[in-house]
Design a protein around this nucleic acid. Structure first.
Length: 288
DNA sequence: CGCCAGGGCTAGC
DNA sequence: GCTAGCCATGGC
């Protein structure tokens, strides 16, 4: 990896196993949009950037070396050797196929609060509508950021939503999840556990803590732990993953407990990566 | 009309 | 501890 700065851009050369489409389309994030030229523009950590790819080289526009080192380098998980992870997981023939398909997936390190809100909204919902709901909340309560003549909106901080009534969120059309969103804001504002502490404690303990928040069950908790807290041993189990596990491994049971046990035995500490490859593979092929 | 969507809550065993 | 119905919204 070679990094240099040039006129509000950061150029990163020679990153293997990183593809923007794979990374942004595997269902882990909801605030990135593909542009006409194939690059992606999105907002995270209150900053709007555009990232473009040419082979193994990447250009991040609208940033600087300081932000790159403290935010984007971690966000895109650039210091992790994904070749090594894929090689280890390739012992399993299903993941071998799936990881050839989604070879450029990287697990983003997103903000804890954004993950919490996003995946509460994701329950029993569609990805396009999840995006729409998050965006409408940002437009209503977030701050404006202008980039190349377009206006983007940050995700409002928890204290901005704290104390609102459920009817104050009617505009976002997230139905019964409005109450859950407000409970999450309450958790964060009234001294809920900070992200740093989640990364320190065990996965089991972290999951127990998260489930205290209304609207956060096992699956949503696992997504938050995987996408923001670096708990790569979780295996978020949704309807797609259940279908995939049935189809590819002919696992009969569909109970969460049995699938969790299966994943632990099969993928070990890399279950989270395996889950992403499987999810992307299953969703794109729609072969079952 | 019914069914479903990256589930979770609650009641009832 | 486990499962069944219910949950609001909107697209098909």
């Amino acid at each position: 990896m070679r990094i240099h700065e040039d006129n509000n851009k950061i150029i990163i050369e020679n990153i293997k196993s990183f593809n923007l489409k794979h990374t942004f389309d595997c269902g882990q994030c909801f605030r990135w949009d593909e542009q006409a030229d194939g690059s992606f523009t999105g907002i995270a950590y209150d900053r709007v950037i555009n990232i473009a790819q040419k082979g193994n080289d990447f250009i991040i526009d609208n940033t600087n070396m300081c932000d790159f080192q403290t935010i984007w380098r971690k966000y895109f998980d650039l210091d992790r050797d994904y070749d090594e992870i894929k090689q280890e997981l390739s012992k399993d023939h299903v993941i071998n196929e799936a990881s050839k398909f989604g070879w450029g997936i990287r697990i983003l390190q997103q903000e804890f609060w954004e993950c919490l809100i996003s995946f509460i909204i994701s329950s029993n919902n569609f990805i396009p509508r999840i995006k729409k709901i998050i965006n409408s909340i940002c437009t209503e309560y977030g701050d404006e950021v202008v980039y190349k003549g377009n206006t983007y909106y940050t995700l409002p901080k928890p204290d901005k939503l704290y104390g609102l009534l459920e009817c104050d969120l009617d505009f976002c059309k997230s139905g019964y999840r409005c109450g859950y969103i407000l409970d999450a804001a309450r958790y964060m504002t009234e001294g809920g556990m900070e992200l740093e502490n989640f990364t320190k404690i065990s996965t089991v303990e972290a999951r127990k803590e998260l489930i205290k928040i209304k609207g956060v069950g096992p699956k949503v908790a696992d997504c938050i732990l995987l996408f923001s807290a670096g708990k790569y041993d979780v295996f978020p189990t949704d309807v797609w993953i259940k279908k995939a596990v049935h189809h590819f491994y002919s696992l009969k049971s569909s109970s969460n407990k049995d699938i969790s046990t299966f994943a632990k035995e099969k993928y070990g500490d890399l279950a989270g990566f395996a889950q992403q490859y499987l999810f992307f593979f299953g969703r794109e092929l729609k072969s079952f």
